[in-house]
């Protein structure tokens, strides 16, 4: 388990990047940890590239803006290109290999390629590639427990979409085991 997570999550607007970050943040809230969630904002919210910084720690968070992440989740090529070299040595890269066709050059990082969008489409979780990647992130970093993650899903899925709770849990599990 990583004691301190400084994550950058990045992709296109509409892929649920900010939501993925919020899930991490809420898990931290439930676990009673220190945390921050900082989105990119402005025109980027409207369909362009989109990213957010998430910090989880047992100490008060200093800089909410993560410039040297130890975790990077990339959901498109421009985001991969922009952030891969900011990862600290030994950092963790998780990327959607169905959208990013790349030979990762860095040898000093842990790399996890998950064909999340393809998995989502094939297994009936369309539009939930972000949740699948979150599952993988959970497995690799243990930023929280599966139990907290389930509580998080119950908390963040809005009241009128309660029927989607099991689906989200399944998507997390799918990524966890991918």
């Amino acid at each position: 388990m990583l004691k301190e997570i400084n994550a950058v999550l990045a992709g296109f607007g509409g892929q649920g990047i900010l939501f993925m970050g919020k899930m991490m943040a809420y898990s931290g809230l439930i676990d009673n940890r220190e945390l921050s969630w900082l989105p990119s904002y402005g025109p980027e919210m409207r369909g362009g590239t989109c990213n957010c910084s998430v910090c989880l720690s047992d100490e008060p968070v200093c800089s909410p803006l993560v410039t040297a992440p130890n975790v990077l989740v990339a959901m498109n090529r421009p985001s991969y290109d922009k952030f891969v070299n900011t990862l600290v040595p030994g950092g963790i890269l998780i990327y959607d290999s169905s959208l990013i066709d790349v030979e990762v050059e860095r040898k000093d990082i842990e790399v996890y390629a998950v064909p999340a969008t393809q998995l989502a489409d094939e297994k009936g979780y369309k539009g939930m590639a972000n949740i699948i990647l979150l599952g993988k992130l959970l497995k690799v970093t243990e930023f929280t427990t599966m139990d907290t993650m389930k509580k998080t899903i119950e908390k963040v899925v809005p009241a009128r979409k309660q029927h989607l709770i099991p689906k989200n849990v399944e998507a997390v599990e799918l990524g966890y085991n991918a």
Partner: peptide, 10 residues
Amino acid sequence: DGMLGQMMEP
């Protein structure tokens, strides 16, 4: 500032 306004914390 914009960072404090936009960020979430407990």
